[in-house]
């Protein structure tokens, strides 16, 4: 019997937590609990990111998602969580349809996931070194790709390859666009959510 692979063990742990709480989000009908389960699930996902060697993304997940977005959601929950809306039951028929359709989608995705040979686990675990990807990601945003050095070199050597460049292609433009987008969104959100003059239930 081989010794237990710590990496695999951790993966299983995080994966189980992430999946279980994701399912819990679905199953519970109490919106407050839902929010909590979602936090746990997303947190565990961050752990998965770390395990996959994406430490920066994992950190962002924790900071932006768990720390930011979910706080926003919790606020929303708190603002709307009045008696009848805390737990709203769905009719059983919808559950059945959702279960059937969902399980068929799940079956489809799972069968695809395990079908492609290239996605099978490597024969032996690769040595995992502690790495910091933030600087590489930063470089990547600006168009300096640490991971594409060979390609870049090849393109430099042979200009015909450069036409559809695979080498030093960065994400500066999207990055800028997103920054502006974020700004616009925040303003819009603030505008939408501002209190109206005329407040009160139109219908019971």
């Amino acid at each position: 019997m081989d010794s237990i692979n710590v990496h695999s063990l951790l993966f299983l742990l995080f994966a189980a937590v992430a999946c279980a709480f994701a399912v819990a989000v679905v199953v519970t009908s109490n919106v407050v609990r839902m929010a909590f389960y979602l936090v746990v699930s997303l947190g565990a996902t961050a752990g998965l990111y770390f395990l996959a060697g994406a430490d920066f993304v994992g950190a962002m997940q924790l900071m932006i998602y768990v720390g930011g977005t979910l706080v926003l959601l919790v606020f929303g929950v708190m603002l709307t969580a009045q008696g009848p809306f805390i737990s709203m039951r769905t009719r059983a028929g919808e559950w059945i349809i959702a279960a059937v359709v969902g399980s068929s989608l799940l079956g489809l995705l799972l069968s695809t996931a395990f079908r492609v040979d290239a996605w099978k686990p490597p024969a032996e675990a690769r040595e995992q070194t502690a790495s910091v990807t933030s600087s590489r990601l930063g470089g990547g945003l600006l168009g300096y790709r640490v991971d594409r050095m060979e390609q870049a070199a090849a393109e430099q050597a042979d200009p015909t390859l450069a036409k559809n460049s695979q080498g030093m292609s960065g994400y500066l433009m999207p990055f800028e666009v997103i920054s502006v987008h974020l700004l616009v969104v925040l303003i819009a959100a603030a505008y939408l959510a501002r209190p109206k003059k005329r407040v009160g239930p139109r219908e019971a």
Binding site: R91, A92, G93, E94, W95, I96, A99, S103
Partner: peptide, 25 residues
């Protein structure tokens, strides 16, 4: 397992109401 769980949800724990499904479809 799925079939068993669904039956349990409906008739064991009574979490879901079969009459509702009936009326829905």
């Amino acid at each position: 397992l799925g079939g068993f769980l669904l039956a349990t949800l409906f008739y064991g724990w009574k979490y879901l109401d079969p009459a509702e499904v009936r009326n829905q479809f």
